[in-house]
Nucleic acid binder design. Structure first.
Lengths: 139, 139
DNA sequence: CGGCATCCGTGCCGATACTG
DNA sequence: CAGTATCGGCACGGATGCCG
């Protein structure tokens, strides 16, 4: 039995979301959004998805090199969480030294498309946001 | 001079994002995305934006009633952060008792559109994600 | 009514050391 | 190479009390 880090660390997050949206209410229809949003918006998931989107298939070490600043631990945690949601698959080659490859699933690529759209919006509007922040800071 | 809670609490987040994306790297173009994503994906921002999107203009207490489970403190923090980014405006009426109204800006409504798209995607794909999680849990 | 100040638990994440 | 285990700092957010 492997996977001990990610399993524990993810449980809390899931329950947090479920707990706040499982009951009725007008905003209830957005439960999935916050769920996925909170999955993707953590510190490293988006980086990982984008990088995999560019290269189609990468090894652990290649990902680590491509994502500047990420620790071994967080790369593992992030990859396991994305695997759990079905955004990527993990393929183990029982060689010595071991080799593990990661690639996006169709679902993962679909998510990537969404992120790209959001990316476009963000790039278009970031200047305005920064301007607003500046204005706000001296009020 | 007002605004003490939110200002302090936001500084760390901003610096965190900037610190990790201000340098070069292939994923650098996504800096704004993570910035906005981390703004929107906190515990209450999306609720707030959606609710304001429905009602066009709401008072503090009305928002508090509409967002189930939110504390006074977090509503204040959330509203200040969204105001800082220019997603909503805060209008104070110096009456007794005081009245404060919040409404989305054009920028905020534009962001809302993006969230709605993401919402659609999430609703379409959540079943698949949940299925994947189940499969993963018994592996 | 619409906040602010403070205390405090909990979870996220980095650093480090160890392993098949 | 690709992880796991553990410790510790710090940010996020809840509870409570006070105020113009």
């Amino acid at each position: 039995m492997e996977v001990t880090i990610a399993k524990k660390e993810r449980k809390a997050t899931s329950e947090k979301v479920v707990g706040h949206f499982s009951d009725k209410g007008p905003t209830n229809s957005l439960c999935p959004v916050r769920d996925i949003l909170s999955r993707v918006s953590d510190k490293w998931s988006m980086h990982t998805i984008i990088l995999l989107g560019k290269s189609e298939k990468l090894r652990f070490t290649e990902l680590k090199k491509g994502i500047e600043g990420i620790s071994q631990r967080m790369l593992t945690v992030t990859l396991r969480a994305l695997e759990e949601d079905g955004f990527l698959v993990r393929e183990i080659f029982p060689e010595i030294p071991p080799r593990v490859e990661y690639r996006l699933t169709d679902l993962g690529r679909s998510l990537l498309q969404q992120l790209m759209q959001l990316s476009d919006w963000a790039n278009e509007n970031m200047d305005e946001v920064l301007k607003q922040r500046k204005r706000y800071s001296k009020k």
